[in-house]
């Protein structure tokens, strides 16, 4: 033991001790400079959108952490972002009282910092049961194993993301949900009439602004399969796998045939509703996912395949895109199928 003691005494003044102790000093100094000092000097105040979480939302947050959701979903929007939540760049006060932070480091799925109110509760339910029900190309795992109670908490947490901004969006969902459900319960035709009535007048009497060509319909089919098929189903009858979780249920496109505007037009309505969604129902807006041409393509697909009526032949006063006008000649050898001669409008 005394030999060890001698060696210990020798060690204290030796270069080895300088290395161990000196390096610790450097580390402590660095910790002070890059952790303690910024934490001390930062403002720790809530931002304008922050609000405390409710109990159910906190429960959902714990399930979000438990399942490692943060490894695919970030929770901060950057200035260069375009997707959901791009209206609100993250501020440090948004994360007030959060413990742990859930900023995340990867976006295998979308950012969720402003998810609250972006989708309806029933959309989230179907999405948690099987994400491919509402988002056919999603890579997200199914969370049916979490059970009804936890999924409810997770949905509540989703709807809280974005704080007061989320609350405003959720309020809009609630407002239109009441109207939508009332119309839906009256019957399928009344439902369509109500949906049409919520499209601005200028969009209603508008034909498709992109000719219903075979190529356009083929592109539209791809869009339909990537975005729409989970709810509206492969034959457009509104009986996709997500439908049983949704209230009101997705529209059956074939019924639109009875509700052409002026017995002619449907393209503008389809475009408007795909673009903006139907807030208050599970129908999300797609204007961030799909550019203008893609929305026309998918509405052309719906017209030809499910509605059985195309409205691109009606003359309009506009100047067509150069490749679409009459002067451009036929775009395909096969003429588009004629719409049926007998109108079934009421």
């Amino acid at each position: 033991m005394s030999a060890l003691w001698t060696k210990t005494r020798a060690f204290v003044g030796s270069p080895a001790a300088v290395i161990v102790a000196g390096s610790m000093l450097v580390l402590v100094a660095a910790t002070f400079a890059t952790v303690l000092w910024p934490v001390y000097t930062m403002k720790h105040k809530p931002s304008s959108l922050w609000r405390p979480n409710r109990t159910l939302e906190d429960e959902g947050r714990l399930r979000y952490i438990a399942n490692g959701c943060t490894y695919c979903h970030s929770q901060y929007v950057r200035p260069q972002d375009w997707g959901i939540g791009a209206e609100r760049i993250a501020e440090s006060g948004d994360y007030h009282q959060q413990q742990p932070h859930l900023l995340g480091s990867e976006r295998t799925g979308p950012d969720l910092s402003q998810e609250g109110g972006e989708h309806s509760d029933d959309w989230h339910l179907a999405h948690f049961i099987n994400p491919r029900f509402t988002r056919p190309r999603s890579l997200m795992p199914r969370f049916a194993f979490e059970g009804d109670r936890n999924i409810k908490a997770l949905v509540a947490y989703m709807q809280s993301l974005g704080g007061k901004n989320a609350d405003a969006r959720v309020a809009a969902q609630k407002r239109f949900h009441a109207e939508a459900i009332a119309a839906y319960r009256k019957g399928p035709d009344e439902n369509i009439e109500w949906l049409h009535s919520r499209v601005p007048r200028s969009w209603r009497a508008m034909p498709t602004e992109s000719p219903v060509t075979d190529a356009s319909v083929a592109r539209g089919e791809k869009v339909y399969q990537d975005y729409c098929i989970g709810c509206h189903g492969p034959v457009g009858d509104g009986e996709g796998p997500a439908a049983r979780y949704l209230e009101p249920r997705p529209v059956n496109f074939t019924t639109l045939r009875r509700h052409l505007i002026d017995r002619k037009y449907i393209g503008g309505i389809l475009y408007y509703q795909i673009m903006n969604g139907i807030t208050g129902t599970a129908m999300p807006y797609f204007k961030k996912d799909l550019e203008s041409a893609k929305i026309w393509d998918v509405s052309n697909y719906l017209e030809r395949n499910f509605i059985g009526h195309t409205d691109d032949k009606y003359p309009d006063v506009g100047i067509p895109a150069s490749y679409e006008g009459k002067e451009a000649g036929p775009v395909t050898d096969q003429p588009a199928p004629e719409p049926p001669s007998r109108s079934v409008a009421p």
Partner: peptide, 28 residues
Amino acid sequence: FMYPLGNVMWHPATGAETGITDAIFLWF
């Protein structure tokens, strides 16, 4: 020294600090 600091071991329940501060601790 660094493991307990970064794991915020003085908060055993969450192992995290509060707010954006937590991100600074974590990535240090």
